[in-house]
Design a protein around this nucleic acid. Structure first.
Lengths: 130, 130
DNA sequence: TAAAAATACTCCATAGGTATTTTAT
DNA sequence: ATAAAATACCTATGGAGTATTTTTA
């Protein structure tokens, strides 16, 4: 199972229908049906029951739906936070100081440094801002 | 990004090395290197810094590592719980009763029923255990 | 009969493997 | 000299698309 399958399943439950769920997911209907069935097979569990044209979650399905939503939220959160940290929108500025100059070092330029610690740079040639 | 990439990355950080991480993951070294680089590209961030033969996480990498571990735990938890529920190891037994017979109904046989509610079955022919 | 799902294919992107070279200690 | 990573290349699984048939309200 991959996070993609959780995303697919949650959307199908929310839509109650595969066709519109596929539209929301920007994909065609048959592959979505296929992935849902693959998911059920992999988990060894029926997740949805077709009642006419509508799909209703089984108890296992409801569980996957509820916890899946949390999982997706956290997953996307982590992605955002890591991206931001990489872009310097979040993170820790590490500032060292010597007599002759200042240096502002930020990871990943100095990955060997640890947050909250002070470092002395002996032959500092330039000041870096990032 | 897929959950697999989190699993790969966390293992590499724990091992500090790609070769042994690949062994733990039951895969070859080159595809693992490849997936890590792909991950960095997708997130637009350097996650690891090679210091000799060892890899150390950048700040973004440490973040992904810490939150990734939680993510993996929750992900695997959900999978286990859904599997168990499907197998009837967990879940809710819904029991209805009429004069002439008992019926024990369990989802997914009756997905339209809600937990904690009582249902009357008029023409019950058999007793189902599952 | 008019929706949506299932079926039956086709295609291709990419995950993963193998062989080799390069890099560091 | 040795162990690990990078590079280059190859293979094949399976994710996604299209066309069509089968359901069901």
């Amino acid at each position: 199972m991959e996070i993609r399958h959780v995303r697919y399943f949650v959307t199908v439950v929310q839509e109650g229908q595969i066709t519109t769920a596929a539209q929301k997911l920007n994909m065609a209907q048959p592959p979505l049906s296929q992935q849902i069935r693959r998911l059920e097979k992999e988990l060894g569990t029926q997740l949805l029951v077709r009642v006419g044209k509508k799909f209703l979650p089984t108890e296992a399905g409801e569980l996957l739906y509820e916890r899946g939503i949390e999982l997706l939220k956290e997953f996307d959160d982590v992605v955002d936070i890591v991206k931001d940290t990489g872009e310097g929108l979040r993170g820790t500025l590490q500032i060292g100081c010597v007599k002759s100059c200042f240096i502002i070092y930020q990871r990943p330029f100095a990955p060997f440094m640890n947050s909250g610690q002070m470092y002395i740079f002996r032959s500092c040639q330039e000041i870096l801002f990032s």
